[in-house]
Nucleic acid binder design. Sequence first.
DNA 1: CACACGATTGTCT
DNA 2: GACAATCGTGTGT
Length: 173
Amino acid sequence: MLGWTICRRVTGGVIKLMIVETEAYHQADPASHSYRGPTNRTAPMFLAGGHLYVYFTYGMHYALNIVTGKLGEGEGVLLRAAEPLEGIHLMIKHRRRNSLKDLARGPGRLAQALGVKDTKLSGRPLGPDTLYLEPPTLAVGPHNIVAAPRIGIRHAADLPWRFYIKDHPFTSR
DNA sequence: CACACGATTGTCT
DNA sequence: GACAATCGTGTGT
């Protein structure tokens, strides 16, 4: 997904951001929400790839995932950071801050920039009425992708499943 | 029903 | 760099 553009149509225009940082999760992973099987909150992770999983955390933040596994597998990719491309005024409105660099630098900020402020999209498929992806214009591959330990994980033996575009100014942390 | 805590962020030092 | 904010969820009684 690195280099792809995540898009959303909202009243007033279109929001587009290039994904520059992600983290991967699967069921056989104590750090994953899917580790203990599906629950009300995490059931969308067990849908087929191409669905959305949105969760609420720390009492105030939403985070956006794209499900990647087959039906029942419990795999997903957390979108951690993105570069604003289009609809920047809309993202500023959603975020109530005007720092371009901080508009989508971090999973909570990215969701907020896209106007995701509840879990209504959780369990819905990608598409023109929800969120959708456009293919990369930038060449992204092994030469400019870095794999590193994930952020904010305490329990699991940490896997190097945080991926980001090397030297990109819009990655988090 | 009670309670501990989180795939974070913003603010202050 | 440290810490408070804030509440849904999961687990256990």
